[in-house]
Each structure stands twice: as structure tokens, then as C-alpha cells.
Amino acid sequence: MFYDMIVHTKSSIGEDEIDEVVEMARKLGLSGICAPIYYTSLKDLKEYVNNLPHYDDIDVVSGVIVKADRPQDVNNIVSMVRQKVEIVIVHGGSYEVNRAACENSKVDILAHPELNRNDSGLDHICIKSAAENNVAIEINFRELLESSGVLRVKTMKKIMKNVELCQNYKTPMVTTSSAVSKWGMRAGRELASIAHLVGLPIVDAIDTVSTIPLQIVEENRKKLQGKKIGDVEVIDDGQTKSTSSDA
């Protein structure tokens, strides 16, 4: 079971339609992908969720990327979209936004906290609160793939720093291809080898593309269906209980 949590399609910044992306995911042996859009308005989001296709073999997860300059905007938008989609991703980059995302338990994934920065974008305070609020930090494969030479070295250094901190505080991590075309996608085990390359032990590296994304998706689906409120889960709704006692 391998999941790729960010694959861009034409509805966000990608080049390919979702059908082509799903076809490639099938070839690569992935069991699910998330094709998120950038947040513009609630109307667009509703339209996107309604038009999201369903396939028998590939699980297509709905998601939204929240891109905001100020931390207040992040919190406002996240609380608006939380009940509409399965995955909420925050577009990281500035330290204040990274910190706001880490401190918000409604956020699922903080994407590329080191984007366009000279430092890693996260400190021990952020990582600690991310662990408490169950916010996963993303390892972005596209940043490494599309850079070369000194630029790749610098990016890798920043990601390695985040991985090291996350290991200290046991913060969940997610490896994504973040592909803008179908040729940027990779198989699940290959993405895990990238996570291993930047410093995670191989067992944890495989978890970043299988167990952790699956947990996030399942938990959010339960919450959206009303089977889980906060940390309390509805195991039996009463009706099934009476039938079982009759039997």
C-alpha cells in the first residue's frame, strides 16, 4: 500500500489531466494519490470535490493546498475548508506560516517548509508542536529532482536538518513526489529510498509513504462521515447492537 500525497494535475499547477496521472500511478503500483488544488474560494472547492473521479483500483483523495502570507489567514482558511476536504495541506515557506501550521491541529501536512529560504524553516518549537498536533512534515522530491549541483546540495541540507529534528521529537513525516507532470512521479518504494537518503532509517522511510498517509486519510474520512469527533470514535451506533443481541 503506497500513497503519493501530492500529485499536481491541471486543476492546480500540473500539466496532465487526472486520467493520465492515475494511469501512471497504476503502472507504478501506487494504491492511492492525492490530487490537491490551491484554495481560491469555497465555491471552487465544492466544485472540485464533486467532480473528483472515482476509480476501482486507485484511491483518489481530495485535498486542498492553503497558500497564505499571514498566519491569521492560514488559520481562517483552514477552519473554513476542514469540513469540506479529506486532506488539508499548508504551503510552507515563511517561518510564521510554518509555525502557525504546526500549531494548528486541523492541518494534516505542512509542505516544503524550507522553500526559498536559507535555513530549514523549522525550529525545535515548531517540530514539537507539530508532533503534539499530529501535523506531518513533507519531504518534497520535486525540489531535489529538478535542482542540480550546489542548489541540490543546499536543498538536501535543509531537508536533512528537518528530518533530524523530526526524529528527535517523533514528528510524523510524509514523502511526496509533488510532481507537476506524470513523468515526475515515482513508485512508492523509490520515494521511500529518497527519505532514506535524507537520513531516515529504512523502516521509518517506508512508513512515510505507506502507514502515515493511510492513517491520515482514514482518520479524516471517519471524521467527515461523523464517526469520529475529536479523539472519540463511534464504534457502535446502537442499531447493530440490537441485531447482534437478537442473533
Binding site: 513523468w183 513508485a187 520515494l191 529510498s193
Partner: peptide
Amino acid sequence: RSALTFIKMIGDHNVIIKV
């Protein structure tokens, strides 16, 4: 395996290498 993951173009062709 990770070196294979970083191959994106061979000649003029886009490629993905799957182990």
C-alpha cells in the same frame, strides 16, 4: 535505488525507472 530514482531524462526521452 535512489540513484535510479533521480534519472528523469535519457537522451530526449522522459523516463521513470521502476525497480
